[in-house]
Amino acid sequence: MRTAMANRLTPYMFMAPAAIIMAIALMYPLGYMVWGSFRDWNPSQTIGEAEFVGLKNYIFLWNDPNFHESLGVTLRFAFFVVTIEMVIGVGLALLLDREIRGISLLRTMFILPMMIAPVVVGLMWRYMYHPTVGTFNRFLDSIGLPRVDWLGDHALTSVIIADIWQWTPFIFILSLAALQSLPRSALEAARIDGATAWQQIIHIKLPLMMPVLIVTALLRLIDAFKVLEVILVMTEGGPGLSTEILALRISRTATEFRELGVAAAMSNYLLILLLLLTVGMFAFNRWQEARAARLNALVEEES
């Protein structure tokens, strides 16, 4: 009896150290942040000295036009980068899924932008966008076109372009992996059935890649909501609030405005948004697994 009990407890005992570290390293700061978001908290105070204000920070943000603006920028940024990256990434994968000479070198080159540190990417693009000595405007000069105020009037577009440059490879490699794991014979059957290259993509390749594409898009979306360094280096959120995405606003609220409570509340809003996306992703996975299990059960029932 005692041994049986000990046996049942053993796995939990082995898991305990990891669980304790997780609790300290993950749950404690998270709880600290949630706790702080209910207080009017200045960086010079300890959290205990700060006044408890209930939901005041959340209500304030709910009505704050600057927060709305920032959230709007974030949503626009995320929507455009993910949409455009998906189209280009999947398109490239469809184009490069073939055996031609030097293809592996080409694939490696496509993945390079992803390997560069975000700060470096930000600096690089900032110099390329420079109004007078930047690569783009010098090029426009040389072919006799008017200069573009990249990081001024078109700041959001410019940071979106930089993000697309950096993160399209991520979607490209995942799509390529998905494409290469497609059943070859189904594609051959489609050729014999009379499908053109375009029809193969529409009717066979894309539908079969869809589960991977949905997860990839969600991963990118979650990432796009948290982007900070590249934009910080390129525009610092400006001009005005035109590129001030949420992560940047949170950082400025905490450091410049010295409103730790508000910053914590804002973080929680972002966290809730990301949680919804993550839960959505898990739900999608579960739904797929459940469907596969149901099909298997059906087959076994018959045989």
Binding site: S185, A186, A189, I204
Partner: peptide
């Protein structure tokens, strides 16, 4: 028309 070893059906 062709019949394949692994059937090559369109799974979706």
């Amino acid at each position: 028309a062709m019949v394949f070893q692994d059937y090559a059906l369109y799974p979706h």
